[in-house]
Each structure stands twice: as structure tokens, then as C-alpha cells.
């Protein structure tokens, strides 16, 4: 994976990751985007929850299309060579014609390469959409994978290939799966969100391993922090990983979350996220 040369880019993309779900990744992404006046990009396309908090007016919707093979039955001899080369079992031969299972198709083109009769062409179908709008005074966009579609990568790629200039906060899918890997290909820096527990640490270690592969600057935000020394802090110290800041454990934050409220709307929490925003600038060394 090549490094992205900042000199050549007009935008700065910060990916917000977490090893597991439910660590507060969306809470931190949305509120931090507000504090920074940045754009908020929700790439967690299977469960894009950021708009529940930012509540933007959606002004623009684009479809995300992927290619799939279309078989010309006049030319097809039912030889089955395309079935054999398809690594995804998207094609099958029932003995009386080739069947396509479009949701399994990755649109790779292998079947078209091997078809001797020129019977394979490509059509396009929608797998998701991208919505854009303004909420709480910032530009927000999100990718949504259509229900029943198994592959999120095309939607993620589509939203990230067309990012606007400026500072983009990218709310990534949880975990270290290929969806996250795809998101990171477009990132110039990363924030790793974790909790100060053994579970949080275990998942953080994996997230660090992932970000290291991309050689981009990153820092950690500890959510639900108890203010004490803890295993995550000592891990970061040992590994010389910068801690951008912490979000304290609090009942009022949990309640605001459950109601879908923005934390940045309240005075106390505004200071908290302004502080995190400053910490982020220092850790990622942007000017």
C-alpha cells in the first residue's frame, strides 16, 4: 500500500477506527467533526448510525452501481467454462443454461475473459447509495449498503474516492476486516477508539497492527475512561503510541447517546471535544 503524499492532496482524511463495535466510535467521530468544523463521512455502511445524531437534511443521493455479467443466450453454448473460473460461485450450470447469482458476483471480469463465444457482457446494478446533507452546520455524507447485499467494499470505495477538499472525519466500520482495510487505503491519519479494559486492549492491539501496515500517523482516544492509570495507558506508553485524549465514563453521556443527542450541544462536553480536537492536531502534526 503506498503512502499518500500530502503535498499532492487537497484533503486530509482522518479515519476513526475501533477494534470492536460499541466502543463509541460514532459518538467520537460525529462530535469531533463538529469540534473541528470538518466534514463527517460515515463509512460504516452496514450500520451507518452517525446520521441518527447529526440529523442532516439530505439534499443529494447518489446510487452506487456495480457490474455484473449478462449472458447472451443466443451466443451461449452452455459449455460451463465461465462456471469453472468463477471463484465466487456466482455462476452455475443447471444443464439447461447458465444461471447467475448476482449478489455473489464481485464484478471481476474473469468469466468474460474465458468465454470463447463472446456471450458475456456487463450490466450495472445498484448495491447501495450515498447520501449527503448539512447537519449541525457541517457537511455530512454516508454510504448505505442495501439490505441483503453482502459486499460493502464497493460502497465504501465509492464514497471515499470522491471526497471533497478539506478535513474529512471518516467513521469506519468496526473490526479489522476488509471493509476497514478499504477505508484505510484513503486515510492520511487515524484515530483508534478504545475502552480501558482487557477487551478494549486486545482489540486495540489488532487495530494498531492494521494501521501500522499503512504507515500513517495515528493516536488513541480512550472512551469510558475512569481517570486512573490503566492497561491501555500503559500499553500506549510501552509502544510509544500517543494518546489524543480521553472521554470520561458518564451516565449523562450514555443517556444522551440512547436518545440520539449530540454531546457537542452541551457546554461541558463541548469543552471536552474542543480539547480532543486540539490533541488530534498535535498528534497528527498538521498545521
Amino acid at each position: 500500500m503506498e503512502d499518500i503524499d500530502l503535498e499532492e492532496e487537497d484533503n486530509l482524511n482522518i479515519a476513526v477506527l475501533s477494534g470492536k463495535g460499541g466502543t463509541g466510535k460514532t459518538t467520537i467521530s460525529t462530535n469531533l467533526a463538529l469540534a473541528l468544523g470538518a466534514k463527517y463521512i460515515d463509512c460504516d455502511v452496514e450500520e451507518p448510525n452517525g446520521f441518527l445524531f447529526l440529523k442532516p437534511n439530505i439534499v443529494n443521493t447518489e446510487e452506487v452501481m456495480v457490474e455484473y455479467p449478462v449472458i447472451d443466450e443466443d451466443k451461449c453454448t452452455d459449455c460451463g467454462v465461465c462456471v469453472d473460473v468463477c471463484q465466487f460461485n456466482a455462476l452455475a450450470s443447471a444443464g439447461n443454461g447458465i444461471l447467475l447469482f448476482e449478489k455473489l458476483c464481485h464484478g471481476c471480469g474473469a468469466c468474460e475473459i474465458v468465454c470463447k463465444y463472446g456471450a458475456l457482457g456487463y450490466g450495472k446494478r445498484e448495491v447501495g447509495r450515498i447520501e449527503k446533507g448539512m447537519g449541525h452546520g457541517i457537511n455530512c455524507s454516508r454510504g448505505i449498503l442495501n439490505i441483503g447485499e453482502p459486499m460493502a467494499v464497493p460502497v465504501i470505495r465509492s464514497i471515499l474516492r470522491n471526497l471533497d477538499d478539506g478535513l474529512n472525519i471518516i467513521d469506519c466500520p468496526p473490526g479489522t476486516s476488509c471493509n476497514v482495510v478499504t477505508s484505510l487505503r484513503y486515510a492520511d491519519g487515524a484515530i483508534l477508539v478504545t475502552e480501558p479494559t482487557k477487551f478494549g486492549l486486545h482489540d486495540l492491539e489488532r487495530a494498531v497492527e492494521l494501521v501500522d501496515m499503512f504507515s500513517i500517523p495515528f493516536g488513541v482516544i480512550i472512551n469510558k475512561d475512569d481517570g486512573r492509570e490503566n492497561i491501555v495507558k500503559s500499553y500506549c506508553k510501552d509502544r510509544q503510541i500517543e494518546i489524543i485524549g480521553t472521554v470520561p465514563y458518564s451516565d449523562s453521556i450514555a443517556l444522551a447517546y440512547s436518545k440520539g443527542e449530540m454531546l457537542y450541544a452541551t457546554q461541558d462536553n463541548r469543552a471536552l471535544f474542543d480539547h480532543l480536537a486540539m490533541g488530534l492536531g498535535e498528534v497528527l502534526e498538521w498545521t
Binding site: V83, F88, A90, A92, S93, G95, L104, P150
Partner: peptide, 14 residues
């Protein structure tokens, strides 16, 4: 098969 296991199994039986 990583994906499409049901299809692979059916194709085999066909």
C-alpha cells in the same frame, strides 16, 4: 467454498 457454498454443493450434485 468461502462464499456460495450452497451453489457449489448443488453444482456438484448436478
Amino acid at each position: 467454498s468461502e462464499g456460495g457454498a450452497g451453489i457449489a454443493a448443488s453444482q456438484q450434485l448436478i
